[in-house]
Design a binder for these strands. Structure first.
Length: 562
RNA sequence: GGGCUCGUAGCUCAGUUGGACAGAGCAGGAGCCUUCUAAGCUCUUGGCCGGGGGUUCGAAUCCCUCCGGGCCCA
């Protein structure tokens, strides 16, 4: 995988050039690097390519005005590097450094060489990472809220992979505990009603229509089941229902282009003694104690508000106990970075989980939780209620069928995950700018249309463009596209580091905007010089590649026609 | 009551971890299709970044404190 690394070669070159020049300047002055000194891409392209604040920070030690220092530094940099065409001083004393167009034109070659791998980087350094997401209880079909988590986890995995992490994805199946018993009971209750053996209505049972369907199916396959004892019936109902529902979940996820590599059973933690193993580890470290007949974990030693129970008086284990065992097992399987995608309603759970991680002797940086806020499903502005238990929910499958995978995923992934989002079925179906997915896809399709036309006209395009041809890319709009594409690997690395998927969709919208603007301003095939035609085709082909690579991070298709 | 989180244009949201005059899209207004896809482009109207203090050369961003929404726990 090492040869895949093509990230930001151009930017790295620019950055290190400036870095060493500033270093030389400091050496000449006999000064150390100021702590708050930064060299970074300029916020605004009008300000050049890279900007640095060092002059402002050197003003005090040198006893000179910031702008005076900046002027000195600017002269030095300008005279020391050929690729740098200008160094301007701005505002309170920023140095804005601009590289020659030839420097940026190389981005097209970078993309041509890397192809689908453009954007990959070594940021993650091959860290063995486990992304766990969805992990919904198999008590009913996935709803839209799960869909957001699914899209997020899947996309995070894609981003982390491109950023050089060694990623495995996993679904944790809660197949032990109360919810599961309730599932079996709910099916059994329905089944007994169907055969006129009514029983007392269970509390908090699952009322969805799908429970009735499952009961019916079971009766059809085995009519004798109706006469079974409650204990036997419930158990068989549970086993059957769990499998059917899990199959459904798997199918819904597949339809949504989400695939987990592992499906991990909570029950296996008990069956394989992994809970005991985790307990032993904690006990050995001295964090467990008995009180009032229960087994406690001293999470307060790690900043939790109170200690937590692992095994209750009656001998049953808490959810926390199996979660500890599960995460302990993740580490013992060799993962050294755990990313959990959780519903935001579990946020109160984070401190104790962090405590558990710390008690295992692990660093805080080895465990991250990405919280997914609620999705408010709307229909023409009116809320649609969702509740698995009441049986009045919009399933993920329904929503995907209604608006399509591309629109749904893009919508979910365009917002910060920790803020609640309104998902209006009407708006998401609309082909407007309320729905930027079409805007981005359209940019890709437009380029493909030009490529097709170019081929018809016999304007053959070399696999790899030469420097001479690319030299024709010299307008501000050319530069804007080149810079934006050059930022792509950085953007991915940053999204990976901060686990923020929404950067990707924003980036793509910006790139698409530059493209549409370019498309309207310049005619590509009818440019006055043949070299310009070639150069622009190469540029656009590169843009299409970056758009496709970016859309792939979101699990959204890059259509060739629309 | 305690904890977490959010508050940015009429609406939906960005804001590259403390930088330059606060940015997009939608909605409103004015234009652009005999020429590569108008699902597009170009102008334009619109803001005390919830309020007040503080740290800093510099704050939407960090700290404190109120106000207001959401969620979790009790």
């Amino acid at each position: 995988m090492k040869e895949d690394i093509v990230a930001g070669d151009t930017r790295m070159q620019a950055y290190s050039t400036v870095h060493s020049l500033v270093g030389e300047f400091l050496l000449k002055k006999g000064l150390a690097w100021p702590e708050k000194a930064v060299i970074e891409p300029a916020r605004d392209p009008k300000h050049g390519d890279l900007a640095t604040n060092v002059a402002m920070l050197l003003a005090k030690p040198l006893g000179k005005a910031p702008r005076e220092v900046a002027a000195e530094l600017a002269d030095f940099i300008r005279s020391s590097c050929e690729d740098i065409v200008s160094v301007d001083i701005a505002g309170p004393g920023f140095c804005n450094i601009t590289f020659a167009p030839s420097f940026w034109q190389k981005v097209v070659s970078d993309v041509e060489h890397a192809g689908v791998r453009y954007g990959n980087s070594a940021t993650g350094a091959g860290k063995k990472t486990l992304v766990e997401y969805v992990s919904a209880n198999p008590t009913g079909p996935l709803h839209v809220g799960h869909g957001r988590g699914a899209a997020c986890g899947d996309s995070l995995a894609r981003i982390l992979r491109r950023a050089g992490y060694d990623v495995t994805t996993e679904y944790y199946i809660n197949d032990a505990g109360r919810q599961m018993r309730l599932l079996g009971l709910s099916v059994w209750y329905r089944l007994r009603n169907m055969v006129n053996r009514p029983m007392e209505e269970p509390a908090d049972w699952y009322r969805g229509e799908y429970i009735k369907d499952i009961a019916q199916e079971m009766l059809l396959q085995d009519p004798d089941l109706a006469a079974a004892t409650d204990e036997d019936g419930e158990q068989r109902c549970y086993e059957y229902a769990k499998d059917v529902i899990l199959e459904g979940i798997r199918a819904d996820l597949a339809e949504f282009r989400v695939e987990h590599q592992n499906w991990f059973s909570e029950k296996s933690l008990f069956d394989e003694g992994k809970v005991e193993a985790a307990f032993q580890a904690l006990d050995k470290a001295g964090y467990l104690y008995e009180k009032d007949g229960a087994l406690w974990f001293a999470t307060t030693q790690f900043g939790d508000d109170k200690d937590r129970v692992l095994r209750k008086q009656d001998g049953s284990l808490t959810y926390f106990a199996s979660d500890i065992a599960y995460h302990h097992d993740k580490f013992s399987r060799g993962f050294d970075y755990l990313v959990d995608v959780w519903g935001a309603d579990h946020h109160g759970y984070i401190p104790r989980m962090r405590a558990a991680i710390a008690a295992m002797g692990r660093q805080q940086s080895e465990f991250d939780v990405e919280l997914i806020q609620l999705v408010n499903l709307l229909m023409k502005g009116q809320p649609v209620s969702m509740s698995t238990r009441a049986g009045t929910f919009e399933t993920l499958a329904d929503v995907v069928k209604e608006v399509g995978v591309d629109a749904a995923r893009f919508m979910f992934l365009s917002r910060k995950m920790d803020t609640a989002v309104d998902f209006d079925l009407e708006a998401v179906k609309e082909r407007s700018m309320d729905n930027p997915v079409y805007y981005v896809q359209y940019a890709h399709a437009r380029i493909c249309a030009i490529m097709r036309r170019a081929q018809e006209q016999g304007a053959g395009l070399a696999q790899l463009s030469s420097e001479e041809v690319l030299a024709a890319l010299d307008t501000p709009e050319d530069m804007a596209l080149l810079r934006k594409m050059e930022y792509f690997p950085d953007m991915i690395a940053q999204a990976a580091r901060t686990l923020s998927v929404h950067h990707v969709s924003h980036y793509l919208t910006e790139l698409a905007q530059l493209l549409h603007s370019y498309y309207n301003k310049y005619s590509i095939l009818a440019a006055d010089k043949p070299d310009t035609v070639q150069a622009r085709l190469a540029l656009l082909r590169a843009v299409a590649q970056v758009l496709a690579n970016g859309l792939d991070l979101l699990g959204v298709s890059a259509p060739e026609r629309m």
